[in-house]
Amino acid sequence: MPVYYYIFLAVALFSIGVIGVLIRRNMIIIFMCVELMLNAANLLLVAFSKMHQQVLGDIKPTAASDAQVFVFFIMVVAAAEVTVGLAIIVMLYRNTHSVDVNFLNRLKN
């Protein structure tokens, strides 16, 4: 499968994420859109790593696994991030009974 299929998919995912972040006001949706963008990046990493293996496979055997390791790494970090992020949202909801970002524009209060 040519690599640009993956690229198109990643671009589509990323754009959906961006638009979602821009137009939605629900914090949880925004959060999911951010995850979507992150995964678009992950997809590209995997795809390019595969492509590189085909090109560099003879010279550098580890070329394929390098990026895959990173993807796992990113997924772990993303999971940790989600934990913290959701915890914040829950706390905010408890205090303000709202998950609307525009409502929360005054952090200093």
Binding site: V18, V21, L22, R25, I30, V101, N102, N105, L107
Partner: peptide
């Protein structure tokens, strides 16, 4: 710096 996350993101994009 108006505190609207949407604006920040829009600018970023």
């Amino acid at each position: 710096q108006n505190g609207l996350v949407g604006t920040y993101v829009l600018l970023m994009v």
